[in-house]
Design a protein around this nucleic acid. Sequence first.
DNA 1: CAAAAATTGGTATAATTTACCAAAGAGACG
DNA 2: CGTCTCTTTGGTAAATTATACCAATTTTTG
Lengths: 153, 153
Amino acid sequence: MPDLDAIDRKILASLQTDSRLTMQELADKVGLSVSPCHRRVKLLEERGVITRYVATVDQKALGLHVSVFISIKLARQKEEDLNRFARAISKWDEVLECYLMTGNRDYLLRVVAADLSSYEAFLKNKLTRLDGIASIESSFALSQVKYSIALPV
Amino acid sequence: MPDLDAIDRKILASLQTDSRLTMQELADKVGLSVSPCHRRVKLLEERGVITRYVATVDQKALGLHVSVFISIKLARQKEEDLNRFARAISKWDEVLECYLMTGNRDYLLRVVAADLSSYEAFLKNKLTRLDGIASIESSFALSQVKYSIALPV
DNA sequence: CAAAAATTGGTATAATTTACCAAAGAGACG
DNA sequence: CGTCTCTTTGGTAAATTATACCAATTTTTG
Protein backbone atom coordinates (compact mmCIF):
# COMPACT_ATOMS: atom_id res chain seq x y z
CA MET A 1 0.00 0.00 0.00
CA PRO A 2 1.77 3.08 -1.28
CA ASP A 3 1.38 6.06 0.97
CA LEU A 4 0.01 9.46 0.24
CA ASP A 5 2.05 11.99 -1.67
CA ALA A 6 1.60 15.75 -1.63
CA ILE A 7 -0.99 15.72 -4.42
CA ASP A 8 -3.06 13.02 -2.72
CA ARG A 9 -3.09 15.13 0.41
CA LYS A 10 -4.22 18.19 -1.51
CA ILE A 11 -7.01 16.14 -3.03
CA LEU A 12 -8.10 14.91 0.40
CA ALA A 13 -7.96 18.40 1.88
CA SER A 14 -10.11 19.75 -0.95
CA LEU A 15 -12.68 16.98 -0.91
CA GLN A 16 -13.00 17.11 2.86
CA THR A 17 -14.01 20.75 2.45
CA ASP A 18 -16.18 20.43 -0.65
CA SER A 19 -16.89 17.13 -2.35
CA ARG A 20 -18.99 18.79 -5.04
CA LEU A 21 -16.00 20.23 -6.85
CA THR A 22 -15.93 19.05 -10.44
CA MET A 23 -12.92 17.02 -11.51
CA GLN A 24 -11.84 20.03 -13.55
CA GLU A 25 -11.93 22.33 -10.51
CA LEU A 26 -10.22 19.76 -8.31
CA ALA A 27 -7.56 19.13 -10.96
CA ASP A 28 -6.86 22.87 -11.18
CA LYS A 29 -6.54 23.11 -7.41
CA VAL A 30 -4.00 20.31 -7.16
CA GLY A 31 -2.10 21.10 -10.34
CA LEU A 32 -3.03 18.14 -12.52
CA SER A 33 -5.20 17.61 -15.55
CA VAL A 34 -8.53 15.86 -15.23
CA SER A 35 -7.45 12.33 -16.12
CA PRO A 36 -4.77 11.67 -13.52
CA CYS A 37 -6.76 13.58 -10.94
CA HIS A 38 -9.77 11.38 -11.56
CA ARG A 39 -7.68 8.23 -11.31
CA ARG A 40 -6.15 9.34 -8.01
CA VAL A 41 -9.56 10.01 -6.52
CA LYS A 42 -10.80 6.57 -7.58
CA LEU A 43 -7.70 4.98 -6.09
CA LEU A 44 -8.19 6.82 -2.82
CA GLU A 45 -11.74 5.48 -2.73
CA GLU A 46 -10.68 1.91 -3.53
CA ARG A 47 -7.90 1.97 -0.95
CA GLY A 48 -10.41 3.07 1.67
CA VAL A 49 -8.74 6.41 2.33
CA ILE A 50 -11.87 8.19 1.23
CA THR A 51 -14.58 6.32 3.08
CA ARG A 52 -17.73 8.04 1.92
CA TYR A 53 -19.41 11.16 0.60
CA VAL A 54 -22.06 12.81 2.74
CA ALA A 55 -24.19 15.91 2.99
CA THR A 56 -24.03 17.83 6.25
CA VAL A 57 -27.22 19.21 7.72
CA ASP A 58 -27.81 22.17 9.99
CA GLN A 59 -28.59 21.01 13.51
CA LYS A 60 -30.77 24.03 14.29
CA ALA A 61 -32.77 23.58 11.09
CA LEU A 62 -33.72 20.12 12.32
CA GLY A 63 -34.73 21.56 15.68
CA LEU A 64 -32.01 19.68 17.54
CA HIS A 65 -31.21 22.27 20.17
CA VAL A 66 -29.58 20.07 22.77
CA SER A 67 -26.07 18.57 22.64
CA VAL A 68 -24.95 16.45 25.54
CA PHE A 69 -21.77 14.66 26.49
CA ILE A 70 -22.36 11.60 28.61
CA SER A 71 -19.72 9.87 30.70
CA ILE A 72 -20.49 6.26 31.43
CA LYS A 73 -18.98 3.68 33.72
CA LEU A 74 -19.82 0.03 33.36
CA ALA A 75 -20.15 -2.40 36.27
CA ARG A 76 -17.68 -4.75 34.58
CA GLN A 77 -15.27 -4.20 31.69
CA LYS A 78 -14.97 -7.68 30.22
CA GLU A 79 -14.88 -7.81 26.42
CA GLU A 80 -18.37 -9.34 26.46
CA ASP A 81 -19.70 -6.33 28.39
CA LEU A 82 -17.99 -3.83 26.12
CA ASN A 83 -19.35 -5.50 23.00
CA ARG A 84 -22.87 -5.57 24.35
CA PHE A 85 -22.69 -1.87 25.14
CA ALA A 86 -21.23 -1.02 21.73
CA ARG A 87 -23.97 -2.92 19.92
CA ALA A 88 -26.72 -1.11 21.79
CA ILE A 89 -25.17 2.32 21.29
CA SER A 90 -24.69 1.73 17.58
CA LYS A 91 -28.41 1.27 17.01
CA TRP A 92 -29.43 4.65 18.43
CA ASP A 93 -29.49 7.60 16.02
CA GLU A 94 -29.28 10.13 18.87
CA VAL A 95 -25.76 8.95 19.64
CA LEU A 96 -23.44 10.57 17.14
CA GLU A 97 -20.16 9.64 18.73
CA CYS A 98 -18.98 7.11 21.26
CA TYR A 99 -15.43 6.54 22.50
CA LEU A 100 -13.90 3.98 24.80
CA MET A 101 -11.82 6.05 27.18
CA THR A 102 -8.84 5.81 29.47
CA GLY A 103 -9.16 7.21 32.97
CA ASN A 104 -12.03 7.10 35.39
CA ARG A 105 -14.89 6.66 32.98
CA ASP A 106 -15.32 3.90 30.41
CA TYR A 107 -17.21 5.68 27.64
CA LEU A 108 -17.77 9.19 26.38
CA LEU A 109 -20.84 9.76 24.20
CA ARG A 110 -22.05 12.75 22.23
CA VAL A 111 -25.82 12.78 21.96
CA VAL A 112 -28.21 15.24 20.30
CA ALA A 113 -31.88 15.81 21.05
CA ALA A 114 -34.63 18.26 20.17
CA ASP A 115 -35.01 19.55 23.73
CA LEU A 116 -34.52 18.58 27.35
CA SER A 117 -37.64 16.47 27.51
CA SER A 118 -36.69 14.39 24.50
CA TYR A 119 -33.24 14.00 26.00
CA GLU A 120 -34.90 12.80 29.17
CA ALA A 121 -36.87 10.32 27.08
CA PHE A 122 -33.64 9.04 25.57
CA LEU A 123 -32.17 8.52 29.04
CA LYS A 124 -35.26 6.88 30.51
CA ASN A 125 -36.27 4.70 27.60
CA LYS A 126 -32.93 3.74 26.20
CA LEU A 127 -29.72 4.43 28.05
CA THR A 128 -30.75 3.65 31.63
CA ARG A 129 -32.47 0.45 30.50
CA LEU A 130 -29.16 -1.09 29.49
CA ASP A 131 -27.79 -3.71 31.86
CA GLY A 132 -24.39 -3.36 33.44
CA ILE A 133 -24.17 0.41 33.66
CA ALA A 134 -22.65 1.62 36.93
CA SER A 135 -23.00 5.36 36.42
CA ILE A 136 -24.11 8.02 33.96
CA GLU A 137 -23.11 11.66 34.04
CA SER A 138 -24.45 14.25 31.59
CA SER A 139 -22.65 17.46 30.62
CA PHE A 140 -24.55 19.93 28.47
CA ALA A 141 -23.07 21.99 25.68
CA LEU A 142 -24.13 25.61 25.63
CA SER A 143 -22.87 26.13 22.12
CA GLN A 144 -20.82 24.55 19.39
CA VAL A 145 -17.73 26.71 19.01
CA LYS A 146 -16.19 24.54 16.29
CA TYR A 147 -17.30 21.46 14.42
CA SER A 148 -15.22 20.04 11.62
CA ILE A 149 -15.22 16.75 9.78
CA ALA A 150 -11.96 17.51 8.02
CA LEU A 151 -9.03 15.59 9.45
CA PRO A 152 -5.68 17.36 9.20
CA VAL A 153 -3.78 16.07 6.16
CA MET B 1 -39.80 29.34 6.15
CA PRO B 2 -41.88 26.26 5.52
CA ASP B 3 -40.79 23.32 7.58
CA LEU B 4 -39.69 19.92 6.49
CA ASP B 5 -42.22 17.36 5.35
CA ALA B 6 -41.76 13.61 5.29
CA ILE B 7 -40.16 13.60 1.84
CA ASP B 8 -37.66 16.31 2.79
CA ARG B 9 -36.67 14.24 5.78
CA LYS B 10 -36.19 11.16 3.64
CA ILE B 11 -34.00 13.19 1.31
CA LEU B 12 -31.91 14.45 4.22
CA ALA B 13 -31.57 10.99 5.71
CA SER B 14 -30.40 9.60 2.38
CA LEU B 15 -27.95 12.37 1.57
CA GLN B 16 -26.48 12.29 5.06
CA THR B 17 -25.64 8.65 4.40
CA ASP B 18 -24.55 8.93 0.78
CA SER B 19 -24.40 12.20 -1.09
CA ARG B 20 -23.23 10.51 -4.29
CA LEU B 21 -26.61 9.04 -5.05
CA THR B 22 -27.79 10.17 -8.47
CA MET B 23 -30.99 12.21 -8.57
CA GLN B 24 -32.63 9.18 -10.15
CA GLU B 25 -31.61 6.91 -7.27
CA LEU B 26 -32.56 9.50 -4.68
CA ALA B 27 -35.91 10.11 -6.37
CA ASP B 28 -36.65 6.37 -6.32
CA LYS B 29 -35.79 6.17 -2.63
CA VAL B 30 -38.13 8.98 -1.66
CA GLY B 31 -40.91 8.15 -4.11
CA LEU B 32 -40.70 11.08 -6.51
CA SER B 33 -39.53 11.57 -10.06
CA VAL B 34 -36.27 13.33 -10.79
CA SER B 35 -37.59 16.86 -11.34
CA PRO B 36 -39.37 17.53 -8.05
CA CYS B 37 -36.66 15.66 -6.16
CA HIS B 38 -34.02 17.87 -7.71
CA ARG B 39 -35.95 21.03 -6.87
CA ARG B 40 -36.39 19.94 -3.25
CA VAL B 41 -32.68 19.29 -2.87
CA LYS B 42 -31.84 22.72 -4.30
CA LEU B 43 -34.33 24.33 -1.95
CA LEU B 44 -32.85 22.52 1.04
CA GLU B 45 -29.45 23.87 0.00
CA GLU B 46 -30.72 27.43 -0.47
CA ARG B 47 -32.55 27.40 2.84
CA GLY B 48 -29.36 26.31 4.55
CA VAL B 49 -30.73 23.00 5.74
CA ILE B 50 -28.09 21.18 3.74
CA THR B 51 -24.95 23.08 4.64
CA ARG B 52 -22.30 21.36 2.55
CA TYR B 53 -21.10 18.21 0.83
CA VAL B 54 -17.91 16.59 2.05
CA ALA B 55 -15.80 13.49 1.66
CA THR B 56 -14.94 11.60 4.84
CA VAL B 57 -11.45 10.22 5.25
CA ASP B 58 -10.18 7.28 7.26
CA GLN B 59 -8.34 8.49 10.35
CA LYS B 60 -6.01 5.48 10.46
CA ALA B 61 -5.12 5.87 6.78
CA LEU B 62 -3.85 9.34 7.60
CA GLY B 63 -1.82 7.96 10.48
CA LEU B 64 -3.83 9.85 13.09
CA HIS B 65 -3.76 7.30 15.87
CA VAL B 66 -4.49 9.56 18.81
CA SER B 67 -7.87 11.06 19.77
CA VAL B 68 -8.02 13.22 22.85
CA PHE B 69 -10.76 15.03 24.70
CA ILE B 70 -9.55 18.13 26.49
CA SER B 71 -11.40 19.89 29.29
CA ILE B 72 -10.44 23.51 29.67
CA LYS B 73 -11.17 26.13 32.28
CA LEU B 74 -10.49 29.78 31.60
CA ALA B 75 -9.28 32.23 34.22
CA ARG B 76 -12.17 34.56 33.35
CA GLN B 77 -15.36 33.98 31.38
CA LYS B 78 -16.09 37.44 30.01
CA GLU B 79 -17.37 37.52 26.44
CA GLU B 80 -14.07 39.03 25.36
CA ASP B 81 -12.17 36.05 26.81
CA LEU B 82 -14.51 33.51 25.25
CA ASN B 83 -14.19 35.15 21.83
CA ARG B 84 -10.43 35.22 21.99
CA PHE B 85 -10.34 31.54 22.88
CA ALA B 86 -12.81 30.65 20.11
CA ARG B 87 -10.77 32.50 17.49
CA ALA B 88 -7.56 30.71 18.45
CA ILE B 89 -9.18 27.27 18.51
CA SER B 90 -10.79 27.81 15.14
CA LYS B 91 -7.46 28.25 13.41
CA TRP B 92 -6.04 24.89 14.49
CA ASP B 93 -6.72 21.91 12.25
CA GLU B 94 -6.02 19.43 15.05
CA VAL B 95 -9.13 20.63 16.88
CA LEU B 96 -12.11 18.98 15.24
CA GLU B 97 -14.74 19.93 17.78
CA CYS B 98 -15.06 22.51 20.50
CA TYR B 99 -18.04 23.09 22.79
CA LEU B 100 -18.77 25.70 25.40
CA MET B 101 -20.01 23.67 28.35
CA THR B 102 -22.12 23.96 31.45
CA GLY B 103 -20.73 22.63 34.72
CA ASN B 104 -17.25 22.76 36.11
CA ARG B 105 -15.30 23.14 32.89
CA ASP B 106 -15.67 25.86 30.27
CA TYR B 107 -14.75 24.04 27.08
CA LEU B 108 -14.59 20.51 25.79
CA LEU B 109 -12.37 19.89 22.77
CA ARG B 110 -11.82 16.88 20.55
CA VAL B 111 -8.33 16.83 19.11
CA VAL B 112 -6.57 14.34 16.83
CA ALA B 113 -2.86 13.78 16.40
CA ALA B 114 -0.52 11.30 14.74
CA ASP B 115 0.96 10.06 18.01
CA LEU B 116 1.61 11.09 21.60
CA SER B 117 4.62 13.19 20.75
CA SER B 118 2.79 15.23 18.15
CA TYR B 119 -0.03 15.65 20.65
CA GLU B 120 2.54 16.89 23.13
CA ALA B 121 3.76 19.33 20.48
CA PHE B 122 0.21 20.60 20.03
CA LEU B 123 -0.10 21.18 23.77
CA LYS B 124 3.30 22.84 24.18
CA ASN B 125 3.34 24.98 21.04
CA LYS B 126 -0.27 25.91 20.77
CA LEU B 127 -2.75 25.26 23.55
CA THR B 128 -0.64 26.10 26.60
CA ARG B 129 0.60 29.26 24.94
CA LEU B 130 -2.84 30.80 24.99
CA ASP B 131 -3.38 33.46 27.62
CA GLY B 132 -6.11 33.15 30.19
CA ILE B 133 -6.26 29.38 30.54
CA ALA B 134 -6.68 28.24 34.13
CA SER B 135 -6.50 24.48 33.61
CA ILE B 136 -6.21 21.78 30.97
CA GLU B 137 -7.13 18.14 31.41
CA SER B 138 -6.61 15.52 28.71
CA SER B 139 -8.62 12.28 28.40
CA PHE B 140 -7.48 9.79 25.82
CA ALA B 141 -9.75 7.69 23.64
CA LEU B 142 -8.75 4.05 23.33
CA SER B 143 -11.04 3.49 20.38
CA GLN B 144 -13.85 5.03 18.44
CA VAL B 145 -16.92 2.88 19.07
CA LYS B 146 -19.23 5.01 16.94
CA TYR B 147 -18.77 8.06 14.77
CA SER B 148 -21.62 9.46 12.74
CA ILE B 149 -22.20 12.71 10.94
CA ALA B 150 -25.84 11.94 10.29
CA LEU B 151 -28.19 13.88 12.55
CA PRO B 152 -31.46 12.11 13.37
CA VAL B 153 -34.21 13.38 11.06
C1' DC C 1 22.54 4.96 -19.93
C1' DA C 2 18.83 2.06 -21.49
C1' DA C 3 14.76 -0.58 -20.54
C1' DA C 4 10.67 -1.08 -17.85
C1' DA C 5 7.12 0.73 -15.08
C1' DA C 6 4.26 4.20 -13.58
C1' DT C 7 2.00 8.47 -14.32
C1' DT C 8 0.21 11.96 -17.13
C1' DG C 9 -2.85 14.43 -20.56
C1' DG C 10 -6.10 14.63 -24.48
C1' DT C 11 -10.14 12.99 -26.79
C1' DA C 12 -14.50 10.63 -27.36
C1' DT C 13 -18.40 8.64 -25.22
C1' DA C 14 -21.56 7.74 -21.51
C1' DA C 15 -23.90 9.33 -17.54
C1' DT C 16 -25.84 12.92 -14.84
C1' DT C 17 -27.49 17.42 -13.83
C1' DT C 18 -30.20 21.21 -14.83
C1' DA C 19 -33.66 24.25 -17.22
C1' DC C 20 -38.08 24.56 -19.13
C1' DC C 21 -42.91 23.70 -19.78
C1' DA C 22 -47.22 21.32 -19.59
C1' DA C 23 -50.15 18.55 -16.53
C1' DA C 24 -51.87 17.08 -12.15
C1' DG C 25 -53.06 17.97 -7.36
C1' DA C 26 -54.30 20.79 -3.20
C1' DG C 27 -56.49 24.58 -1.02
C1' DA C 28 -59.66 28.74 -0.77
C1' DC C 29 -64.02 30.65 -1.45
C1' DG C 30 -68.54 31.60 -3.15
C1' DC D 1 -70.20 21.21 -5.00
C1' DG D 2 -67.67 23.46 -8.43
C1' DT D 3 -64.20 26.70 -10.01
C1' DC D 4 -60.38 29.53 -9.63
C1' DT D 5 -55.65 30.03 -7.96
C1' DC D 6 -51.43 28.40 -6.20
C1' DT D 7 -48.30 24.73 -5.56
C1' DT D 8 -46.14 20.64 -6.79
C1' DT D 9 -45.20 17.18 -10.03
C1' DG D 10 -43.22 14.74 -14.19
C1' DG D 11 -41.31 14.49 -18.85
C1' DT D 12 -38.13 16.15 -22.35
C1' DA D 13 -34.12 18.46 -24.18
C1' DA D 14 -29.82 20.81 -23.55
C1' DA D 15 -25.68 21.51 -20.97
C1' DT D 16 -22.44 19.90 -17.87
C1' DT D 17 -19.65 16.36 -15.82
C1' DA D 18 -17.67 11.77 -15.25
C1' DT D 19 -15.40 8.04 -17.20
C1' DA D 20 -12.86 4.92 -20.46
C1' DC D 21 -9.27 4.59 -23.62
C1' DC D 22 -4.85 5.41 -25.70
C1' DA D 23 -0.64 7.78 -26.81
C1' DA D 24 3.03 10.57 -24.78
C1' DT D 25 5.83 11.77 -21.02
C1' DT D 26 8.19 11.14 -16.78
C1' DT D 27 10.19 8.33 -13.21
C1' DT D 28 12.34 4.25 -11.51
C1' DT D 29 15.43 0.38 -11.80
C1' DG D 30 19.10 -2.50 -13.08
